[in-house]
């Protein structure tokens, strides 16, 4: 059991400040001399805007000890199709290649492919933790998306297991027939090997996420996000994920005599309820800051408020 979990997900509804908080958290980790990669999985990337840098799939150094990347499921799926076609050229007759390409393209159009591909890319990055990175901070897409991403290993494993069993049945019967005619010969089955490898990869990821990852849920102090956040807490806990205290972003000052002071009165109600409902999980307040939160100094200020979110 690791005391500090090296993989962190920042999740929550759209527009609550996940990206900025993930960036600030990453910056704080990097400030402790830890090699940190902040990666955005949201199809509408904004991580690059926060760091003021052009980001791509391959991690790019944005500050000392700090790297950032924006990964995309579509891109990963396209790369994978090209890899598979490349491999198939060696093994298959040329005349079937157009059909192979067509079937592959149809398959990548299936719903769920983009998420699976995204998870696949994330798996590669998680595998580098400990080696290339000390910390991996994932700025997730809005809640539903993140939940699905984190539950994919558990969802896909039984299906792949079913396919493998199906394949084993065929092989078993072939072997029996071969045995009867006395020409039994053991040959490795490439399909079965690939299915097993795939299942193992998913299982490993599921295990690593449960053991080494933690989720920081972010919300703003308003009534509506509260219920959704609590539902998410429940789903994640059921999926075996570890949670860190809820981060309440943009808490208004309570010493303002004007408009903000009045709004704070309303926020207090939500904050009280949140503290009661969060229970043991705990709540961390991050005040509303004046700046646009895109410069290093402003992010550092934000990171100081996050210090308790270790």
């Amino acid at each position: 059991m690791l005391l500090t979990r090296p993989v962190r997900f920042f999740g929550g509804k759209g527009g609550v400040g996940k990206t900025t908080l993930a960036a600030a958290f990453g910056l704080a980790q990097a400030g402790r001399q830890l090699r940190t990669l902040v990666v955005s999985t949201d199809p509408a990337h904004s991580l690059g805007d926060v760091f003021g840098a052009e980001l791509a799939d391959e991690p790019r150094e944005v500050a000392a000890h700090l790297w950032a990347a924006e990964i995309s499921g579509e891109q990963q799926a396209r790369n994978r199709v090209e890899e598979i076609i490349e491999d198939a050229h060696a093994a298959l007759p040329r005349e079937v290649m157009p059909a192979v390409r067509r079937h592959l393209e149809l398959a990548t159009d299936s719903p769920g492919t983009v998420e699976s591909a995204l998870l696949d890319r994330l798996t590669q990055l998680v595998a580098q933790v400990g080696d290339r990175w000390d910390r991996l901070v994932v700025d997730s897409a809005p809640t539903g998306h993140m939940l699905r991403l984190l539950s994919l290993p558990a969802l896909l494993t039984p299906w792949i297991e079913g396919l493998a069993r199906q394949r084993e049945r065929v092989r078993g019967m072939d072997r029996m027939v071969a045995g009867m005619t006395g020409r039994a010969q053991e040959r490795a089955d490439p399909l079965l090997e690939r299915l097993h490898a795939r299942r193992e990869r998913l299982e490993n990821l599921g295990q690593r996420l449960r053991d080494e990852a933690a989720v920081h849920l972010v919300l703003v102090p308003e009534l509506l996000p509260l219920a959704e956040t609590l539902r998410t807490v429940e789903s994640l806990t059921q999926a075996g994920m570890r949670l860190r205290p809820l981060i309440v972003n943009r808490v208004l000052p309570d010493d303002d005599a004007g408009l903000l002071g009045k709004r704070r009165g309303q926020q207090d109600e939500v904050l009280d309820r949140l503290a009661a409902e969060a229970g043991e999980l705990g709540v961390l307040w991050v005040p509303m800051l004046a700046g646009s939160l895109t410069t290093g100094a402003e992010l550092t200020e934000l990171a100081e408020h996050l210090a308790a979110a270790r």
């Binding site: 994978r80 093994a91 192979v100 079937h103 299936s110 699976s116 792949i160």
Partner: peptide, 22 residues
């Protein structure tokens, strides 16, 4: 998906396709 049905694990089984077509 070539039969017009959604396949939830399409991505995971992509690399089986060349073998099956073969």
């Amino acid at each position: 998906e070539s039969l017009g049905v959604d396949n939830p694990v399409a991505y995971e089984t992509l690399e089986l396709i060349p073998h099956l077509v073969g």
